[in-house]
Design a protein around this nucleic acid. Structure first.
Length: 424
RNA sequence: GUGGGCGUGGCUCAGCUGGUUAGAGCACCGGGUUGUGGCCCCGGAGGUCGGGGGUUCAAGUCCCCUCGCUCACCCCA
């Protein structure tokens, strides 16, 4: 058996890589327009960082992390998400001192040891965005607006669902009310929900079973338990969304998987990803920076799953990126090959994308290659052309062929070629 | 970790109740055009039928084991 990639790890082949590049450059463009700066952070971190931020009792930390013991005996982990990583860098370098408000994004792979399925891999990629240093609800709205714009510019549609999870002041009271409701309805709940009542009561509201869902219609809503300041924050966030005409729905059952979220949480939901419904999700994490040993500053962020975006793009037949080259140089005979070799090198240095064949194939075969490379032009160099000091430049789309002078030095040959390829 | 589906050239798949040299389309290479691509026609190369064991005169096909992929549960981007 030949060696295969690890389960849940995927190659992104040249055919698909254009989509990825397009996605990334669109994302960077949008992020920059909203005043975000890129930060690049390591993939390996001390295990403790994730345990402390994501939450010791979450599935991610309990059973999904790629954790290994370093040669010095220290436990290290490949990042399962981006926020903890960026916060660590933010704290370590005291970024808040340079600028009170930090708007950061990072793009890259994350690792979780789960069983793969549609839209879920063990190595997956996220666009991860954080705003650090303000708890202004305008920022919550702005961030969701940016996520919305991003999807729009990708040509994708998803619905925005918003909720508030309250804060350490008000959430415990809600939790208590919910648990007592769940215990009162114990007999109507599925096995999973009964288990979750004890382990993670907020999660039961997420249950997909019809019977449970019906029952939860009567469950207490977190929004009725928000303390005055959380309530005010949520209302202001909503107002911000309305001001910008961002369509959204409130989903008071929405919870987040990671422990650190507080107040605003949101998801971008689609029904085109199989069992996975979220292309993006995020929320506020006001106590987290301090909890990680940093200054007492609030933060909010979100992440989008790039595989999921690519999946949606391919379903919507949006394959926006085709690699093409400017020039294919077809040569016939040894003299022409050598001349072509010199010429193509010079042309590449002038900035054109150019390819040639070294195998001495027939012209027909070389034309086929030119076609496959999506060449805009093909320069034909045979013995005739060398003798006459005049190449033939074929426009591949129109089939029009123009002579190009090969008189003078290489530089002037290049100029002759470039002047034609640039004009059309 | 659990359950369903599927493993046949690079890709997508056909191969009925076991029966000779395992097929097709796409892609690839060559020719038709002794120097001109996409369409068309002709030809060619490419396969330990995931792997191992068993039943049989005979296994891609039946049985057992194993590995892998995939979808789903759990959970999540």
């Amino acid at each position: 058996m030949t060696i295969q990639a690890l389960k849940g790890f995927k190659d992104i082949l040249p055919d698909e890589v254009g989509t990825w590049q397009w996605l990334e450059s669109m994302a960077r463009n949008v992020f920059h327009r909203f005043g975000f700066e890129e930060i690049k952070v390591p993939i390996l971190e001390k295990t403790e960082l994730f345990a402390r931020s994501i939450g010791e009792s979450t599935d991610i930390v309990e059973k999904e992390m790629y954790t290994l013991i370093d040669r010095n005996g220290e436990s290290i982990t490949m990042r399962p998400e981006g926020t903890a990583n960026v916060l660590r860098a933010f704290i370590e370098h005291g970024l808040h001192v340079r600028k009170p408000l930090q708007k950061l994004y990072t793009i890259g792979p994350m690792f979780r040891h789960e069983n793969p399925q549609k839209g879920r891999l063990r190595q997956f990629h996220q666009l991860s965005v954080e705003v650090l240093g303000t708890n202004n609800p305008m920022v919550d709205a702005e961030l969701m607006a940016m996520a919305w714009v991003l999807l729009q510019e990708f040509g994708l549609s998803a619905s925005l669902e918003v909720n508030s999870l309250g804060c350490p002041q008000c959430r415990p009271q809600y939790k208590e009310a919910l648990v007592s409701f769940l215990k009162g309805n114990k007999n109507d709940l599925c096995e999973d929900c009964r288990r979750r009542t004890l382990t993670n009561p907020l999660r039961v509201l997420d249950c997909k079973k019809e019977k449970c869902r019906a029952r939860y219609q009567e469950a207490p809503s977190i929004l009725d338990y928000l303390c005055p300041s959380c309530k005010e924050h949520f209302q202001a966030t909503e107002k911000g969304l309305q001001t910008l005409s961002i369509p959204y729905t409130i989903n008071s059952f929405m919870v987040r998987g990671l422990d650190y979220y507080s107040r605003t949480t949101f998801e971008l939901i689609t029904d085109t990803l199989g069992a996975q419904s979220a292309v993006g999700a995020g929320g506020r994490y006001d106590g987290l920076i301090e909890q990680l040993g940093g200054p007492s500053l609030p933060g909010i962020g979100f992440a989008m799953g790039m595989e999921r975006l690519v999946l949606m793009l391919s379903q919507q037949k949006k394959d926006p990126f085709h690699q093409e080259i400017d020039l294919f140089v077809a040569v016939l005979g040894n003299t022409a090959q050598e001349t072509g070799f010199i010429l193509i090198h010079a042309i590449r240095r002038k900035g054109l994308r150019a390819v040639m064949d070294f195998e001495g194939r027939s012209l027909k075969s070389q034309m086929k290659q030119a076609n496959r490379h999506n060449a805009r032009y093909t320069l034909i160099l045979g013995q005739d052309e060398i003798d006459k000091k005049e190449g033939v430049l074929r426009n591949m789309a129109t089939k029009e062929q123009l002579p190009v002078s090969l008189a003078g030095d290489i530089g002037s040959w290049c100029d002759a070629v470039i002047s034609i390829t640039k004009t059309q």
